[in-house]
C-alpha cells in the first residue's frame, strides 16, 4: 500500500489508518473499531439474530482486517463499504457453519417498520442512504421485502430461497426481481431528486 498524502485527499485519513493496521499497530485497529464497531456489530446481528454468534462474527471481521489490511484498495471503494462487506460475508459464513437460518418473517418486518422512523444516529451520508433504503423496503409488498432480506442478509440463492420458503422456484425469481426493480427505481429517483435539489 502506498504512503497516503493526507492533505490532498479527504480519504487519506482512512488510508493512513489502514497503513498503520498493515504495520500491526494495535491502537489503529482499535480506532477502526471505535469508528465502525457499532455498524459492523449491527450488520452481523441482523444476519445472525444471535448476540453470541454476532460477537464472534464481528471479531472475525476485525481480525481479517488485522491480517489482510493490505488488501483494501482505496481506488475500488470506501473503507466503510469494504469493512461492511467483510462483515456480511463473515456473518453469512458463520450462519452456514451453524447450519441454521434465523427466523426472518413477521418479527423482522415489524422491526423494519419500527427502525425506519428511528432518529438519525450517525452523521455519515452512507448510513443516511442506508436508512433511506430501509424506508423504501417497507413500501414493498411483504413477500418481496422478505426475499430481498433473505437473499442479501442471509446469503440465500434462488434455489435455497425456494426450499426455505417452500415457494416454486419461478415465484422466488419473480418476487426477487420485482422487488429489486422497485427498490432500484425508488433509489434512482431519490438520487436524482437529491442531485437536483
Amino acid at each position: 500500500m502506498a504512503v497516503p498524502d493526507t492533505q490532498a485527499n479527504p480519504d487519506a485519513a482512512d488510508a493512513a489508518l489502514m497503513l498503520r493496521i498493515t504495520n500491526q499497530d494495535q491502537t489503529a485497529l482499535m480506532e477502526l473499531y471505535q469508528r465502525f464497531g457499532s455498524q459492523v456489530y449491527g450488520l452481523v446481528l441482523r444476519v445472525l439474530r444471535d448476540s453470541q454468534l454476532a460477537e464472534e462474527a464481528a471479531q472475525d471481521t476485525f481480525l481479517k482486517v488485522w491480517h489482510k489490511a493490505e488488501q483494501w484498495d482505496p481506488s475500488r471503494g470506501q473503507l466503510s463499504s469494504w469493512l461492511l462487506t467483510i462483515a456480511r460475508y463473515a456473518a453469512i459464513d458463520r450462519l452456514r457453519r451453524e447450519q441454521r437460518h434465523s427466523s426472518a418473517s413477521g418479527p423482522f418486518l415489524d422491526s423494519l417498520a419500527e427502525h425506519a422512523s428511528a432518529p438519525e444516529r450517525v452523521g455519515d451520508h452512507r448510513w443516511l442512504d442506508g436508512q433511506l433504503l430501509r424506508q423504501f423496503m417497507t413500501t414493498l409488498p411483504e413477500e418481496q421485502a422478505l426475499v430481498i432480506e433473505l437473499a442479501f442478509f442471509q446469503g440465500m440463492t434462488h434455489s435455497e430461497l425456494a426450499e426455505y420458503l417452500q415457494w416454486p422456484l419461478g415465484t422466488v425469481k419473480t418476487r426477487l426481481r420485482s422487488g429489486l426493480q422497485k427498490l432500484r427505481a425508488l433509489w434512482m429517483q431519490s438520487q436524482e431528486e437529491s442531485a437536483a435539489g
Partner: peptide, 23 residues
C-alpha cells in the same frame, strides 16, 4: 444498491467483551 444495503442495518453498540477479546 447492494452496497447501500450494507448501511441499512441499525448500528448496535457491541458488548464490551468484544473489544477486550480483540485486544
Amino acid at each position: 444498491l447492494a452496497e447501500t444495503l450494507l448501511f441499512s442495518a441499525t448500528p448496535v453498540e457491541p458488548p464490551a467483551s468484544l473489544s477486550a477479546s480483540l485486544l
